[in-house]
């Protein structure tokens, strides 16, 4: 242990609890918004909130924010791959 200079970052309990509270609040917002008829925006709002929630989970719960930056590179790479696959498929689907 003595040799590993940069030892583990330990996330405090309170950080996790705050993030959990935020996640629960966002969940209640998304459920409430779904009840209001916003037409096509309903889906957009739901996906936007889901994106915020996943950013919280990935950064704090999954510790990406405090880990080696190589994991961030991995994450961006796979996220971009998925995005490109979606983009190309919809390009094909919409302009077929």
């Amino acid at each position: 242990m003595a040799h590993t200079e940069k030892k583990h970052h330990i996330t405090p309990y309170s950080t996790y609890i705050i993030v959990w509270l935020a996640l629960v609040i966002f969940t209640s917002i998304t459920v409430t918004v779904a009840g209001i008829s916003l037409g096509t925006y309903t889906l957009l709002v739901a996906l936007f909130i889901a994106a915020i929630k996943s950013a919280l989970v990935i950064n704090i719960f999954m510790h990406i924010k405090f880990d080696e930056s190589i994991f961030k590179v991995f994450l961006i790479l796979s996220g971009t791959t998925l995005f490109v696959i979606f983009l190309l498929t919809f390009f094909d689907f919409l302009y077929r």
Partner: peptide, 30 residues
Amino acid sequence: YTVKLENSGLYWHLVDLIWIFLFPLFYLIQ
């Protein structure tokens, strides 16, 4: 030596992450 616990945690968070998207797409269509 917590890496096994941390990795299992990562797996569990991913399961949560997927549900975060499944939930609005299936259950919140009003």
